[in-house]
Design a protein around this nucleic acid. Sequence first.
DNA 1: TCAATTCACATACGCGACGTATGTAGAAAT
DNA 2: ATTTCTACATACGTCGCGTATGTGAATTGA
Lengths: 198, 198
Amino acid sequence: MAAKKRSEMMEETRAKLIASARKAFAEQGFAAASMDDLTAEAGLTRGALYHNFGDKRGLLQAVVDQLDTEMAQRAHDIGARAGTGWDGLLAEGVAYIEMALEPEVQRIVLLDGPAFLGDPSQWPSQNGCLHMTRQTVERLIAQGVVRPIDPEAAARLLNGAALNAALWVAASPDPQDVLAKAVEAFRALAEGLLARPS
Amino acid sequence: MAAKKRSEMMEETRAKLIASARKAFAEQGFAAASMDDLTAEAGLTRGALYHNFGDKRGLLQAVVDQLDTEMAQRAHDIGARAGTGWDGLLAEGVAYIEMALEPEVQRIVLLDGPAFLGDPSQWPSQNGCLHMTRQTVERLIAQGVVRPIDPEAAARLLNGAALNAALWVAASPDPQDVLAKAVEAFRALAEGLLARPS
DNA sequence: TCAATTCACATACGCGACGTATGTAGAAAT
DNA sequence: ATTTCTACATACGTCGCGTATGTGAATTGA
């Protein structure tokens, strides 16, 4: 076991705190989660927390950034696997709906994030999912597949639709059935973006 | 001045507390708002609050119900003025986007509401806006204007899209310009619901 | 009309959680 | 080897929620 440098130790501490916070925030919500409990589970104290993240919101910010980055990566992979065309965008959107079913994502990124950190597009992580959807839309507009509308606006509305679909699915007693309906409605809505041959 | 009955007095205190809470929650957010300050501004104490609403969440629930009812009424009027067809649905959606620009609506109903009360469709007020949009969609499906998809799903996604559009507009430095883009994108998306002559 | 009761609200208290100020041990620097 | 620095721990003050208890005015019943 090689001796660890100080910077490595600090990275490890940050990682442990973020991991504990992810669990606590997902299970109890940001407001109800106790910093004492949270840090204790990571084998640390609140001192480490305030030293590394400034305050409770700073920790939430770090957790959200990590989750958002993971989500963007996953959605990108799924979208790319479905191709660079229209199907890619649909796959991304559906992937987003399905990811939003995970309690961690829903509670932290979709509910507490906007409530306590404000508008997602202002986050340091820039909301990777949103950014990625926008790029996909831009590409499809350039391809002539999607009609020339503001790509930022389109990405916003698509992500918003997906988010609410996920909230609905998650709260339903029969998630599988509701998920199918949500995906169908999402496909229908998204088709409104298609260039009409008119 | 007629003497007031006890029930009338109680209604008045409830109204005063809700009014104070609307201001406080809108300005500071639910989590940061202090019940002591809130009740003091209404000329009361926390005693009245806990007697009438049970706890802090109960007060938020009451505020959200009131706002939601007002929003549904306003959107209904605007939609009805635009007719009972496709334009009615579009008008409702745009009205929803514009209402979501008001700090009271955005902060309380769209951000803190879901975060602290859970899924909007589970609220006692049943989320009037959502309910109304669904009815409109159902009517248009019956008319053959909208293709036969699950109306609940469609209403959910439309409202979700409108919400995120509003968050975007509100956070932008040039709301007027961004609002126009958002409305355009919303119209495009919504057209995906139209029945195709395929 | 008057005593008894109810109730809407105020007051008082305890507890938990956040943020800060201070302490400390070990690594880094010279 | 001494000094400095820093990543964390410890200790403290404060604030806000929820509850338990008190009180005066309105209501009830005879």
